[in-house]
Structure formats: structure tokens, C-alpha cells
């Protein structure tokens, strides 16, 4: 069954096909949600809310864009809503210990600590960016979307997406440098 057929059967009431959608997109949505919440438990809850929302609104998808564009648009809006509702909380949030899914399992504790620190620096720098830069950067890097796809999700011309990505990355670099300054780790970072 192809994606279009699956969506149609969900729209006709076959809930079991939605399970396939969750499996297919859960990691992508989770990585986006994590970028906003910086906490794996909160990101799990948010990802769950996003899927419930997607299911409830599945009938509003009428093939006017690709399904993934529609899906990311809903997800992005939910994430931005979440940030707005949790502004206070975010100011005091630090990355939790959590279980990190490192690709190389045989890394030592030292390497592990360095990676954790890199993660933390990058997420915090991302968080400090204005929304208009942060979202395209996350869609580009975590969702691997093209300029054209990001343009569709954000309803912006591709040229604007290119400009925002360029400026966003420049700003991100500045934030990373100022955060990392005076830190021995900085040399290991870049």
C-alpha cells in the first residue's frame, strides 16, 4: 500500500493505518520536538500530542502539498505553541542526563562527556536564536528537508529560506563561539 492509499484509508476510518504513519515519522518528529523542549520526557509528550493532533486533523489533508510538508507544518506549529506556553519553564531547563543514543557504543567516559557537552552547547545556542532562524535550521539538519520543502512548510519563498539559513548559521556560530570562549572544550568543538 502506498502512502496516499494509507492516508485515504485513515480518512475513511481505518485507524490501524495510522500506526504505520507513527512508526514512519516518530523519530523525525521527536528530533524536532527535542530541539524545542531540550528534555526527552517533555519531547516524548509533545511528540505524542503532535500525533494525536495529526490524527484528529487528518481530513484537512487534501493533497494540496506533500504529506510530509503538511505533517511538518502541523508539528512545527505545535512546537512553537509549546514554546510559547512554556517560556518560563524553558528559562530554567538544562539538558537532563537521560539516555543518549550514541552511535558508537564502545566510547569511553571521557569521549562521552565531551559529546554530551557538545550536544548541550549546540542545543542551547539553537535555543537562543530567533524563531525565524531556528526552525529552518532544525528542519534542514534534523529533518533533512531541502530548501524547497522548508519553503513549503514555512510558507516562505525558497530564496528567503536560503537567506535565513545562511544568517541563522552565522549567528549560531557567533553564539557558539561566545558560549565556548574560555572553555577548554572549544578547541575540541570546532
Amino acid at each position: 500500500m502506498d502512502l496516499e492509499e494509507r492516508i485515504h484509508s485513515i480518512q475513511r476510518g481505518d485507524i490501524s493505518q495510522f500506526e504505520w504513519i507513527v512508526e514512519e515519522y516518530k523519530n523525525k518528529i521527536f528530533s524536532l520536538a527535542y530541539g524545542y523542549t531540550k528534555d526527552s520526557y517533555l519531547a516524548q509528550d509533545l511528540t505524542q500530542d503532535i500525533f494525536v493532533r495529526l490524527y484528529k486533523n487528518i481530513n484537512s489533508f487534501q493533497g494540496q502539498s506533500s504529506f510530509s510538508t503538511w505533517l511538518y507544518r502541523v508539528a512545527k506549529n505545535q512546537c512553537i505553541d509549546w514554546t510559547r506556553r512554556n517560556k518560563k519553564r524553558m528559562e530554567n531547563t538544562f539538558l537532563e542526563e537521560g539516555q543518549w543514543d550514541f552511535k558508537d557504543l564502545d566510547i569511553g567516559p571521557e569521549e562521552r562527556a565531551i559529546r554530551k557537552e557538545k550536544n548541550q552547547l549546540l542545543y542551547e545556542a539553537l535555543e537562543s536564536l530567533p524563531e525565524k532562524y531556528r526552525t529552518p535550521l532544525m528542519l534542514f539538519h534534523f529533518q533533512n528537508l531541502s530548501y524547497g520543502e522548508i519553503a513549503e512548510v514555512l510558507d516562505l519563498p525558497s530564496k528567503t529560506v536560503a537567506t535565513h539559513l545562511y544568517r541563522g548559521k552565522k549567528l549560531l556560530r557567533e553564539k557558539l563561539i561566545s558560549k565556548g570562549r574560555g572553555d577548554m572544550l572549544w578547541t575540541a568543538l570546532l
Binding site: A43, T47, W100, R115, L122, L172, R173, L176, L190
Partner: peptide, 14 residues
């Protein structure tokens, strides 16, 4: 340089 950092980023797993 920044992209290398992005490539190394780790996510907690679901």
C-alpha cells in the same frame, strides 16, 4: 565546522 557539529549531534531515543 558547524555542520560537523550537527552531524555529531545525539538524541535520546524514544
Amino acid at each position: 565546522e558547524i555542520n560537523n557539529l550537527f552531524n555529531e549531534i545525539q538524541l535520546p531515543s524514544l
